[in-house]
């Protein structure tokens, strides 16, 4: 597992002008981190994108995340967020699947 941050430009389906894209930091925990092989990454998404949009973008780029997307805690800036939450530039979105070991 490495902790490098990698930047993934996103197919801007809503907004074509890269100037207007907002940057979101996505944090991966547990199985999500294992699948991604990294602890966090910066995503560029269109303004007014929701947490759900951001997830869809990730799923398109990394289909293996599918296995955790129905069972996880989604937190926006360390608070529970429904998928409909709108994202702002600099937001931190955490993907936290449950751990069951002990």
């Amino acid at each position: 597992m490495d902790n490098n941050t990698c930047e993934v430009p996103v197919d801007a389906t809503r907004e074509l002008n890269p100037e207007s894209l907002i940057k979101i930091k996505v944090l991966f925990f547990a199985r999500a981190r294992e699948i991604m092989g990294l602890a966090d990454m910066t995503l560029e998404v269109a303004p007014q994108s929701t947490a759900g949009d951001c997830l869809m973008t990730l799923l398109t780029k990394f289909p293996k995340l599918e296995e955790i997307c129905n069972s996880m805690v989604l937190a926006l800036n360390e608070e529970y967020a429904p998928k409909s939450s709108t994202l702002k530039n600099g937001d931190e979105l955490a993907i936290i699947p449950p751990i069951s070991g002990g």
Binding site: M72, P97, P98, I99, S100, G101, G102
Partner: peptide
Amino acid sequence: AALGLEGQLTVYHHKGGPCYRCLFPTPP
């Protein structure tokens, strides 16, 4: 819970708080 190099901790069903199923209705 703990696995690898990570751990998680919550208090469930206490003073009106959520239970495990509220958070994870579908098992991974």
